[in-house]
């Protein structure tokens, strides 16, 4: 996939936290949406617990949080379509492509430096 994927953009947001347990994921997605609204080309990389953000069937939870699944639905509207995930993290949680809300390209560890180098700004949440 490495040769066919466009690895460049203005902003790469790396999401490493699951929904609900903290505000990291929501605040990271907010930064991505704002950047896109400002006309920047934005890519997202779901790493570690962050892959859980992509899991289907999320509720809003008993903690009174709004959750982030609805925000993910809005990504396409903001032209955020370069989505990447760490396939090892996905496997660790027993998830496969069929369990995801949105298609994200599996990014092997060897391609990670190229993805990061291809973006002018990287924000990690």
């Amino acid at each position: 996939m490495s040769s066919t994927v466009n690895f460049s953009g203005d902003l790469l947001v790396i999401l490493r936290h699951a929904p609900h347990g903290s505000s990291w994921l929501r605040e990271g997605l907010d930064a991505a949406l704002v950047a896109a609204a400002f006309g920047q080309s934005v890519s997202l990389l779901f790493q570690s617990d962050g892959v859980l953000a992509l899991a289907k069937g999320q509720g809003v939870g008993p903690l009174g949080q709004k959750g982030t699944a609805t925000t993910l639905d809005m990504l396409a509207m903001y032209d955020i379509e370069s989505l990447y995930l760490d396939p090892e993290a996905l496997e660790r949680f027993g998830l496969g492509e069929q369990d995801l809300l949105l298609p994200a390209a599996a990014l092997d560890a060897a391609s990670l430096p190229r993805l990061i180098a291809g973006h002018r700004l990287v924000l990690t949440f």
Binding site: L11, A31, V34, A35, F38, R120, L121, T124
Partner: peptide
């Protein structure tokens, strides 16, 4: 201020360094 300022800052400076 809004998050847009953070995005602008990222554009304006040579380096944006995060302390988390």
């Amino acid at each position: 201020t809004g998050l847009g300022q953070l995005i602008d800052l990222g554009r304006e400076v040579d380096r944006l360094v995060t302390f988390a």
